[in-house]
Design a binder for these strands. Sequence first.
DNA 1: GACTCTGTATTGATTGTGTAGTACAGTTAG
DNA 2: CTAACTGTACTACACAATCAATACAGAGTC
Lengths: 120, 120
Amino acid sequence: MFLLDLQSKVPIFEQIQMQILRFIDVGALAPGDKLPSIRSLAHENGINPNTVAKAFAELEQSGYVYSVPKKGYYVAERQGEDLRTERIMKALTSLRDSGISRGEIETCLDEIYEGGQKNV
Amino acid sequence: MFLLDLQSKVPIFEQIQMQILRFIDVGALAPGDKLPSIRSLAHENGINPNTVAKAFAELEQSGYVYSVPKKGYYVAERQGEDLRTERIMKALTSLRDSGISRGEIETCLDEIYEGGQKNV
DNA sequence: GACTCTGTATTGATTGTGTAGTACAGTTAG
DNA sequence: CTAACTGTACTACACAATCAATACAGAGTC
């Protein structure tokens, strides 16, 4: 189910987070669904439960999932606009503070939301 | 000339980079201008030359400045569209890959480029 | 109640990053 | 040539981040 690169420079817990978020995005995980258990996910991928727990804990703090102690983690009901917006705002504010104009961003938007190149 | 917070969580070398970039932005440093020397900048701020060197080296790799060995660092002639664009593309591609639509980004753009709040 | 599942907390090893200390080497002005 | 500048390279240390090992405690099922 999960595809982790343990050799990657990207932290394992971050890879887990991204995959969970993607599953939620495509609907593979719907609000209310139970996430795979920390232990099973850790065992399947040969990593430590603690690492998975950290990934889940951060997702919870970000509001994407919630935890029922001793039972499991579940996809939050509303992980919608508020949180996504916060992420976008953070990225765009950083660009603006670097002295980048709105026009420049718009130009790049055109390019990105038309073709579909990806980055590593 | 420089204003560094040695207690900040933000790395010193990064603070230097940001200030250099801002000076370039507002025209206080024009293309061809010589940057303050590594040693003088280090001494004035009570930090190590190595830290300044790291800041300059990264700015050089990013193309904002260039180095003339044993002479000094100079503001690059073209630190314009190409590099800024690259930065923007990276940020926006990341957002898109998280499943965020163009519309959502546009909405945030409206908000950001009107008022002027900053983040820490 | 016993067994097996679940999340949680504590601790420690390892690695990477940021910074300093210091020495080296070329450039330039006198 | 000499002296005072310049950038550069090498080493070392403090600190935080990442992850693993392990133990603990409640929930569910039989």
